[in-house]
């Protein structure tokens, strides 16, 4: 039933965009791509782990694409995606060895530290990374074919949505797997999980790698849709944004990050339109309102709807 509903939602996102203005399609692309990084944050949150450095993997993905184009001459988008999965998995597997030992504020801040180390590297190695001016990412080929200019945006949009949807499904299966349940149990009581014979470390380590790969793929997709990458993708404010969107959407479902991400992008863009001087404040106020009145995130709205729907049915019966 959940799957059917999710597929219906997906169908909506597949059918409507050709009729939308181009810039809205672009915003949606960006929202879907970033939702992958947010999903990584949400997965870890389900295990009670809050990371303030998840932009690290987002940046690893983006710069994998940047370097693949600049130094390896790879223009095939699918190859770049595979490369990003490899670099994302390698980086998170390496750092995870250390980070999976930590909990709470230590975990959050150590992640932050590593993301800032990457930021400093991207900044300092000016000749290689282009420093703060960043790298240009030309339009990729798709399975050897260059998308025609008039349908370029839609192509990138569909690739992003389909890929993200697939990864959402993977994440959904992951949360429903024994490992996913172990992760939830870890949040409740780590000691008990160990006594039951499950490995806490394994659960956290695996989730950490999955979260890293998700963000890395998100970085590639966002990078290609913007066409340019800068070291700020690894800055702590970017990580903060992911955590924020995760809370905005809620952690109740793997679909919640999509909702949070789309709302965030649109609020930010309209804040720009209607208050060019005070957009930061407008954004802040809107987000504060959401937090005050929907502490469980936007996803809690579905719960409200269900409760009301249930009540109505019982009443009519």
């Amino acid at each position: 039933m959940v799957i059917v509903r999710a597929l219906m939602g997906l169908a909506l996102f597949l059918v409507v965009p050709p009729f939308l203005p181009e810039w809205i399609t672009f915003l949606l692309t960006l929202a879907w791509a970033k939702a992958l990084a947010v999903l990584g944050v949400v997965l870890l949150l389900r295990g009670g782990l809050l990371t303030f450095g998840h932009a690290l993997y987002y940046a690893v993905g983006a710069y994998t694409a940047g370097f693949a184009v600049k130094f390896l001459g790879v223009h095939e988008g699918l190859v770049v995606l595979v490369l990003a999965v490899v670099t994302g998995a390698t980086t998170s597997a390496l750092l995870g060895l250390l980070l999976a030992r930590y909990r709470g504020v230590h975990f959050g801040l150590l992640n932050l530290a590593f993301s800032m180390v990457l930021y400093a590297i991207l900044l300092k190695f000016y000749a290689v990374t282009g420093g703060t001016d960043g790298l240009r990412l030309p339009t990729p080929l798709l399975a050897g074919i260059k998308p025609p200019p008039q349908s370029l945006r839609l192509t990138i949009y569909y690739v992003t949505v389909v890929l993200t949807a697939l990864l959402l499904y993977v994440a959904h299966r992951f949360t429903a797997s024994p490992l996913g349940y172990t992760l939830r149990a870890v949040r409740d009581n780590e000691v008990r999980v160990e006594y039951m014979g499950a490995s806490v470390r394994q659960a956290i380590y695996c989730s950490y790698i999955v979260a890293g790969v998700l963000a890395s793929v998100g970085g590639v997709l966002a990078g290609f849709s913007v066409g340019h990458i800068v070291p700020e993708v690894s800055f702590w404010t970017q990580s903060g944004e992911f955590v924020f969107v995760a809370l905005l959407g809620g952690t109740g479902s793997v679909v919640a990050p999509i909702a949070g991400s789309i709302v965030f992008e649109f609020v930010r863009n309209y804040a720009f339109k209607y208050s060019p001087y005070t957009w930061q404040m407008t954004l802040g106020i809107v987000l504060l309102i959401i937090i005050f009145f929907l502490p469980g995130g936007l996803w809690s709205l579905t719960g409200l709807a269900r409760r009301w729907g249930f009540a109505t049915r019982r009443w009519t019966r």
């Binding site: 181009e22 993708v233 957009w279």
Partner: peptide, 18 residues
């Protein structure tokens, strides 16, 4: 406003156009 991350600047440019 030009301030903000790079993806936002590009989004804003597209909004100006469309």
């Amino acid at each position: 406003d030009e301030a903000g991350p790079g993806d936002k600047v590009v989004a804003e440019f597209r909004r100006l156009a469309a």
